[in-house]
Every structure is written in C-alpha cells, then in structure tokens.
C-alpha cells in the first residue's frame, strides 16, 4: 500500500506542476505539451484507483483526439505574433472568483466525506495484471442506470456536429458569392 501512496504523490505533483506550467508558458506549443503531461497524470490517477477503462479512454479521447486537434490548430498560428500579445484579459477577476467557488465546493465535499475515510472500501485485488471487470461494470451502468444522461450527451454532441457543418457551409457560401 506504501507504493500506492508514493505513486499518488508523484502523480499529484506531476498533475499540479504541469497544470501550472500549462498556464504560465508564453509559447502555446509548450502549454499544449504540459497539458498533455497533466492529462497523462490524471490517467495515472485513474489507474491507481483501479479504473483501467477510464484511464484508457482518458488517453485515447483527450490526448489522441483533442490534443492532436489542438496542436493541428496551433501549428497554423504564427507563434511570434501570438506570444507578443497580452495573455490574461479582463476576465481575470471573474476567473479567480470561479476558481475560488470550485475550490470551496471541493472543500465542502472533502470536509463532509472525511468521516467515511475511517472505513476504507474493499481493497483492490493484489498482484500485477489483475483482471478486474472494470469495463464491463462501466458499460452496464452506462446503459441502464445512466441511460438518459448518456443519450442526452450524445444528442448534444450530434447537435454540435451539425451546427459546425452548417456554420462552415454558410461561411463558404458567403466567400463564394
């Protein structure tokens, strides 16, 4: 169990350190690389908690999909010009307030939940390469208990996709005429 704790703190330092680096770098590509490092750290935390499926999906979706697209767009931006502009706009105070609100929410959850820490849940199965039924459990819950939110999310995504196509088509028609 000691190794679990050590790993947790290593990952925590990785996540927080990378997150700070992400928002302080002047070069956008560096920000993206540090963000990738943050996301890998979060996947590591999922693994540590025995949620292998979530860890795999985290890497595939966020790093393999979203970050690749981010980098694709960043590469088309002239970096010198971008770096000379002001990074933090007037939303600074709003952002600070939002951050503090989230922090307060998390603090409430931690303080309320601290009592249950005295009774740790069932220990994860020991040894390497243990075959838990993690993905099966996620799938079953997703398609029974959480079916409605799941379908709502997919409809939202569909609407977003169609919206993106409509908007890009409209702009093309404008430039053509």
């Amino acid at each position: 169990m000691l190794i679990d704790q050590v790993l947790f703190y290593v990952l925590a330092v990785l996540i927080l350190g990378s997150a700070v680096m992400t928002i302080t770098r002047r070069n956008v590509v560096y920000s993206a690389v540090w963000l990738i490092s943050t996301l890998v750290g979060v996947a590591g935390i999922f693994l540590l908690q025995g949620a292998e499926f979530l860890a795999g999906v985290q890497v595939i979706v966020y790093i393999g999909g979203i970050m690749v697209l981010f980098l694709f767009v960043i590469m088309l931006v002239p970096l010198e010009e971008e770096a000379s502009q002001r990074r933090f706009s007037n939303q600074k105070w709003l952002a600070l307030a939002t951050g503090l609100a989230v922090l307060a929410m998390l603090a409430v959850i931690v303080v309320r939940g601290i009592g249950s820490l005295d009774h740790p849940g069932p220990a994860p199965p020991p040894g390497p390469a243990s075959l838990t039924q993690n993905s099966e459990a996620v799938g079953r819950v997703l398609f029974t208990e959480y079916l409605l939110p799941f379908e709502l999310a997919s409809i939202l995504l569909l609407v977003a996709i169609i919206g993106a196509i409509v908007m890009s088509k409209a702009r093309r028609r404008q430039t053509e005429s």
């Binding site: 996947a43 890497v59 595939i60 690749v68 980098l71 390497p128 039924q133």
Partner: peptide
C-alpha cells in the same frame, strides 16, 4: 508481459500518444 483487462485500449492509447511525437517533431 501483462494480460490486462484493457489490453486493446492500452495499445490504441499508446499509438495515439505516439502520433503526438510525429506532430511535435515536424513542428519543432
């Protein structure tokens, strides 16, 4: 080496991180 419950996802995840190497290498 390991027979994990997410073996196939693991391979796909690794190959998608590997793609970043290609992209960053060309940019840098």
């Amino acid at each position: 080496v390991a027979d994990v419950n997410i073996g196939i996802l693991f391979i796909l995840a690794m190959s998608s991180i590997g793609a970043l190497g290609l992209i960053l290498g060309g940019w840098s």
